[in-house]
Amino acid sequence: MRIALFVTCLADTVFPQAAKATVRLLERLGHEVVFPAGQTCCGQMHVNTGYPGEAVPLVRRYARTFDPYDVVVAPSGSCVGSVRHQHAWVARRAGDERLASRAESVAARTYELSELLVDVLGVTDVGAYFPHRVTYHPTCHSLRSLRVGDRPARLLRAVRGLTLVELPAAEQCCGFGGTFAVKNADTSTAMLADKMRHVLSTGAEVCTAGDVSCLMHIGGGLSRLRAGVRTVHLAEILASTEEAV
């Protein structure tokens, strides 16, 4: 299958390893990955900070860039959530009904990685090898905006060598929330403290998730504590093989 990658601005700039892993994984599974030029950002930061008007060109850019493709994947639950649940609203709010329906059409073809693998490509065992103790943080947008459910856990359970340990209070937000972490830094830190406490209580070496933003937040906190737990994107685990761990 020919799959267009929406890298997302954060993965592109700060966490390219998650996007590279997505490419490696999909190619290993025999698919063709294309990277449409002209893509930048989904506009979620603008929408969620109160600037939906400023997000209109970004929504238009996303729709124009990805309309030619049947399947689009992004290694980020929250960006896919924005594409699916905010883009048409942003367009309608600006009075652009044509853009709204185009945005809806592209959104229906945009998938988060675990959705793409399980629902579209029909695989749960991707042939990965990752000999570590891992805990999975579901991330709010994957959990509640996209309803990815147990898809990531099914993928992780099929990884050879991997021990999946359940994260207590997993469904609680890590406290990132985009600009929330800046505007309400104290509350965000308090939420992060509890999330880290739960991560550490699992004894896992690795905390994974399907969102680079939440991983950046949790990983940033763990790093400050020198906690000895790594954050690794789901794509990186699924891309790991015995030959290249």
Binding site: V14, F15, P16, A181, V182, K183, A185, T189, L192, R224
Partner: peptide
């Protein structure tokens, strides 16, 4: 206000290459 974020968390090492450069 971005310092609010880094007050309690580390930013990751900057990658040598962005994804699009790679």
């Amino acid at each position: 206000p971005l310092s609010g974020w880094t007050a309690s968390r580390d930013l990751p090492d900057p990658p040598a290459q962005t994804f699009r450069e790679w």
